[in-house]
Amino acid sequence: MKNSFIVSSLLDNDFYKFTMQNAVIKLFPLVKAKYKFINRGQHSFPKNFDKILKENLNKMAYLKLSNEERTYLEKFCPYLDSSYLDFLDKYQYNPKEVNISQKGKNIQMNIEGAWSSTILWEVPLMAIISELYYKLTGAIPISNKKIIILTKKKIKKYKKLNVKIGEYGTRRRFSYQVHKLILKILIEEGYPIFIGSSNVHFSHIYSIKPIGTLGHEWIMFHAAKYGFNIADRIAMENWIKIYKKNLGIALSDTYTSPIFFQNFNKKLANTFKGVRHDSGDPISFIKETIKHYKKFKINPIKKKIIFSDNLNPCKVANISSFCKKKINPYFGIGTHFTNDVGLSPMNMVIKMDKTLPVIEKKNKNNWISVVKLSNVEEKSTGKKNMIFLAKKNLHL
């Protein structure tokens, strides 16, 4: 157990972490960030979990981008320029940025350092926590044979619905091996509905293009720097500065969808290829999105909505049927692919907690708490007083 190496490639991470890292280096190279582990499922961690977790993190310091991986990124992700790939060539995880402690059955974890460096920790850390948790608690999954049968059944259902699906399941996967197996089946059996994986390492192994754009922390930082009211707009404008018309999917629920739509002006609505739905009622969101595009005389059928909120075939069927001939739906399926092994998936997140947007010698400790106000209460994160302040500012 102690010698297991759960994350063995620098690219074993979600694609949007690299796209955001590139943007951070270009626009906010001096910014610092703090992240916090949130045990939403109140999981009880076994004895010495913190020590074994630390051993795995220490091994990550030796991960380096290989020449082959760099060549893959140059070919499949041309919008990641050579200056960024040079940065990634030299990048190494720094385990000193991660502070882990265990009291009884509770784990506490904080990450702190330059945003450009700490941004890559979240996804592989969660993947390691998930895999270690099942191993150390002696959880027994269904057999690989059953996993294959189950995955093929799901693919059949999605094919019958004729929907486009992607795999987004790195952070809460049961294990690296199960993840690899699921992707192999998706690639072999999923044509033409399977559009790719958010995991860059597996995308490299199978020579496919990784999928993803940006995450909530990009907008949360902009709120700390520029204010809650205009965070969505400035975050999108800054994204366009870096990527022009590439990677053009706007994230809609960092400060609730109504606030997002106030910021999603005609220019942005035209420039971005579509929007991502990650919380709240999908049907209401579809109606609101279509109404918003029509207000600007934009034909919604030329736009996309990426759905990524805890999906399964039943939810996908309802959403795709409602979208028909109105707007183009795409579905990012996470845990329901990579951790459907007869056990309960873990419910945990690692979220940006604070940022230091302006570095001044006089004000070394002017950390600003960041907040996410999802469309549903339980997905919101941040300190209670800051959530209250954000809601007051936004008249929510």
Rank of each mutant, 00 (worst) to 15 (best):
N347Y: 13
I368N: 00
E360W: 01
K351M: 10
K362G: 00
K364L: 04
D340L: 11
K354H: 14
D353M: 07
D353C: 06
V358D: 12
D340W: 10
M352I: 14
M348D: 02
M352Q: 11
E377L: 14
K354A: 14
S369F: 05
E360T: 08
M348V: 10
V358R: 11
D353H: 12
K361H: 05
V341G: 10
S344E: 15
K372G: 11
N365G: 08
W367A: 10
K372A: 08
M348F: 09
P345A: 15
W367I: 04
V358H: 09
D353S: 13
K354I: 00
M346K: 10
N375T: 04
M348A: 12
E378W: 12
V371A: 02
T355F: 00
P357L: 07
E360N: 12
S374F: 07
K364Y: 05
D340F: 12
E360C: 01
K379V: 03
E378Q: 11
L373W: 03
K364Q: 05
V358E: 14
S344C: 04
P357A: 06
L343Q: 05
V371N: 01
E360V: 00
P357V: 06
E378H: 14
K361F: 01
P357D: 02
V341E: 12
M346T: 15
V341H: 13
E360H: 06
N347R: 15
K361N: 06
L373H: 03
K354T: 03
M346E: 10
S369C: 03
N365K: 11
K361V: 03
E377A: 13
D340N: 15
N375R: 08
G342A: 10
V341Q: 11
I350L: 09
K354V: 00
E378N: 13
D340I: 00
I350A: 05
L356D: 01
K372T: 12
K361Y: 04
K351A: 13
N366P: 05
G342S: 12
K362Y: 05
L356P: 02
N375K: 09
E360G: 01
V349R: 08
T355Q: 01
E377P: 08
M348T: 08
P357S: 04
E378F: 14
N347L: 10
M348E: 07
S374R: 09
M352P: 03
N363A: 03
L356Y: 08
K362H: 05
S374P: 04
I359V: 09
V341S: 10
L373V: 04
I350H: 06
K379S: 13
M348G: 00
K372N: 11
V349K: 10
K362F: 02
S374D: 15
K362P: 01
V376H: 14
N347I: 00
M352L: 11
